[in-house]
Design a protein around this nucleic acid. Sequence first.
DNA 1: ATAAAGGCCACCC
DNA 2: GGGTGGCCTTTAT
Length: 165
Amino acid sequence: MKEFPYLSEPSFGFQSTPFGECCIAFSNDGICALSFPENRESALNDMERRFPGVDFKQNDDKATLLVHQIFESSKKPAINLIGTEFQLTIWKALQNIPKGKTTTYAKIAEIIGRPKAVRAVGTAIGANPIAYLIPCHRVIRTDGSLGGFRWGLECKVKMLEWEKK
DNA sequence: ATAAAGGCCACCC
DNA sequence: GGGTGGCCTTTAT
């Protein structure tokens, strides 16, 4: 990722969720990253890779507030998606998958009008910066198997189970 | 400019 | 179940 947008007061924090501890990054324009890393160090590495050179200030209080809004209230905080045109198209399409339902990588490719770009769709979904809010966990393979998940298949399963009820 | 790497799919065995 | 070739975008040479 080469050029990359200005973020007003970039901040981040860690907070526990129903799916383990998450790392959430945000600015005055909204949430720009939400991840469920193995450990805190890998979370920071991921932020550095995605937003090279940005000096995120730690703010666990705001992180706690945001995570509460996400998982314990119906209110969805603002998000700030940053990516290529292709990625943005796909990430927006993911937001139309209803909670508790699943779709496939091939169907997403259909929806965005690029039926042959299935492989690239998988790659783009894997690059989703805002886990859960952009429900990449609701996308599985055409043959019914789970497919992959950036933060571990176990996490994907947990999210799907949690949404079922 | 080119290569290599992906959260895939259809098709074969 | 496992392996191959084709597909398309992104990232690294």
